[in-house]
Each structure stands twice: as C-alpha cells, then as structure tokens.
Amino acid sequence: MFTMTVAGADTFQIPKECIVSTKFITDIPKNSDARTADVGTTLVVTGKILSAVDGDPFDSTRQMALWSTVPAKQAECYRSVTVENVRGNVVVRKYTIPNAFVVDYVESFGDTEGVGTFTLTIKQKKDRIEHVAVDGSYLI
C-alpha cells in the first residue's frame, strides 16, 4: 500500500488505490574512478487514474498534471514529496524529497483499460541533495 503526499502551494495526496509502483534511483555517473560529487536522486511513481463513483474523494491525480505544467520562474515548481510504502503494519519505506521538481509526467488513456495510467518522474534539486531522507522498517 502506497501513499504519496505533495506539499506546496496547494497540498494534495495520491490515495493508496492509485499508486502501483515506485522506483527510487540514486543517479551516479557510471564511469567514475572515485566517489563523484555529482549525485542525483530520482523517484518514479506509476499508478492508475481512477474515476470517482459513489461519493469517493475526487481524483487527485489531476493535481500532478497541473504541477508538471508549472514554469521554472514560479517557486511552486519545487514541492515537498513524501511517499510511504506500508506492508503488514510496517512502514517498509518512507522517501522524503523536500525540493522535488517534475522531470517527466505522462498520462495515458485507452479504450480497453477502463482506467488511465500515469507515470511521474521527479528529482530532488541537485544542490540540496543532502536533504533527501530514506527511512523505514518501523511499525505504523
């Protein structure tokens, strides 16, 4: 079960029904002879775009699409993202990316699936890489 919270000018949450997978990547040049100073952090989140029925909370994935359109001149293009993965009452991972910006956002809809899918790729602002936190292995 995943939950994702994006905090910024308008805070929104992507509920557990939507997120299908996450991938956390530490970006390092592969050709380095010694530890590089050029480290990046990428988080890829994929999931479903659900339609609201019977008074379910309204689909919040649209907020991600709006975030991906914010131009660089506005401060709101950087937001604080928290993604939690909970299994068996244990928080397996909690990623905190406090100055995240969108590098890729794709939504896809077809006439067979019934729901849409999204892929969000975010990175931490590279000069603030030391503020990224990876926690986990504790009970809820």
Binding site: F24, T26, R35, N89, I129, E130, V132, V134, G136, S137
Partner: peptide, 30 residues
C-alpha cells in the same frame, strides 16, 4: 527488501540507500 511484521528487524537495505546518498566530501562515502 524484506520487512519484519513486528517491526523489530532493522532493514539493512535502508543503510544501502543511505550510503548511496553520501556526498563525496564526506569520507564515509568510502
């Protein structure tokens, strides 16, 4: 990436993720 349903086990893979983030000016990256 394993977990303990009682929350007692420290998942060692978190340590690997944290190591991958250590900046080059910090000697602990080696």
């Amino acid at each position: 990436i394993l977990f303990d349903t009682l929350g007692g086990m420290d998942d060692p893979t978190i340590g690997l993720a944290k190591w991958s983030q250590v900046p080059s000016y910090n000697g602990d990256c080696y």
